[in-house]
Amino acid sequence: MTDDNTPPGQTPAALTCTGLTYAFGDGAKAVDGLDLSVASGEVFGLLGPNGAGKTTAIRCVTTLLPVPAGMVRVFGHDVAADRMGVRRLLSYVPQQLSADSSLTGRENVSLFARVFDVPRKERAGRVAEALEAVGLTEAADRMAGTYSGGMVRRLELAQALVSSPRLLILDEPTIGLDPIARTSVWEHIMAVRAASGMTVLVTTHYMDEAEQYCDRVALMHKGRIRALDTPHRLTDDLRERRGDGSSPTLEDVFRDVAGSGLDEEGGEFRDVRRTRRTAARVG
């Protein structure tokens, strides 16, 4: 069951979304006709303000929200038809801090080794390697409840890595972290990716991070993609269009494509509140 659009002899895209649409009970479309294709090995950023629909899109990809067949494929596997196959290929780090604070770091990672069917004789070794990859070897046997926000994020990264995912999905991995912890989280992500060649799909509303670390980005606003390219080309394009010699940032590009109303409507109250709550838990 490979991707229909894949030319012969080429690996299928890590992720393709075709007209991905999702509406919650109230009928409003949180994601509205999303089209994108993430190449294997790429670091792809889904950017947008709070309430843009990033988390909802990701929850569709991770099989948490039901989508019709044909909308989302992960390495050629249709999410609607082959949930278990898709789940074996990806690891997901949600927006909230999701490590179990009443277990040690090592036990947290070990649980994920078990639920991904790592054989017993490999388990301890894999868990140790995953912890080492995120720099938590020393702290591994402390309770996760005593970790700082940045350490919890790295622990979650270790939980995600222990199953050797081909697609790593991170939802706002650096939200609420201080600049040093943010850099550290990103450096661990990039080091692991360089070593393993896995594909990374990441959401963020920090444009500077996306500019620095993502190969390509999609700018999302109100459930739709407004622009999609390398950060470099997006800023170059805007500079040419402006032609006033200024050097615009990704944030400027965003303001340009989202049009007016970004400040007033970018995220309803509950989205802001939810983000703040996460930030408080992380910080």
Binding site: L103, D117, R126, E129, A133, V162, S164, A195, S196
Partner: peptide
């Protein structure tokens, strides 16, 4: 260099072993 194990994804277990394996995992936790 230490990441030898992490390069190979674990093999899927036969479906009938999933439930007992998950029961063990949850009880261990």
């Amino acid at each position: 260099a230490g990441q030898g194990l992490l390069f190979v994804p674990p093999r899927a277990r036969p479906a009938w072993r999933l439930i007992p394996a998950r029961v063990v995992a949850m009880c261990v936790v």
